[in-house]
Amino acid sequence: MNVSEPTRRVSITTKDACVDFPIFDAKSRSLKKTVIGLVGGNIASTSKVPIIEALTDVTLHLEHGARVALVGHNGAGKTTLLRLLSGIYEPTRGVAEISGRVAPIFDLGVGMDPEISGLDNIMIRGLFLGMSRKQMEQRIDDIADFTELGDFLRMPLRTYSTGMRVRLALGVVTSIDPEILLLDEGIGAVDAAFLEKSKKRLSDLVDRSGLLVFASHSDEFLRELCDTAIWMEHGRVKMQGELEEVLRAYKGQAA
């Protein structure tokens, strides 16, 4: 797990990648049915598990330097696509090849433990994002400064307000050096002054990263960070191209 492998090209390539979710209802998700099904020789019953086709035939090629906005309605498959691009979901059909260290930032709260102190949480979150203990120790002062939480960092996280938690999470997340940065929306709940400050840090982070995919409903934010865009609809890539062009088409259709 070397952090610096400079020769490797950062890229994401998918070809006809599909993500199909089998939905096992309470009954079919039991051994009983499968066993009975096998004994009865009813092979077709296995295909009776309803399947949600969350993504269909996604073909993408993203290279180092790409700054991609991801737009689409709720349930269009934005988050699922981000998970495909991060390697969490491996395509059920088709291929997805990811080279580079991925830092997915989908949910600021995940991996945070309310019972331990802010400082401990910074460390754990950093380790989860692929940093080493040493790297995090170097950054911890910088993160502490950024969060402006002061002595509160020694308090357990459960004593924090929502806004304070977001500050902490953003502080860690924006301190790392990712090769592939995948951002999902939901970076809100911070006061205005802090938002200004975190915007600066976010764009610094984006500058450091080799490749960015950013899902958001905020055109303003997207314009600031991205230059190209992908428009998802019903689990398919509906349009891919220049940011403004895609946004216009997307908004035009929405109106």
Partner: peptide, 11 residues
């Protein structure tokens, strides 16, 4: 850290 070298067959 998720270093993911080219992935072919997931199985």
């Amino acid at each position: 850290m998720s270093t993911a070298p080219p992935r072919s067959d997931p199985r």
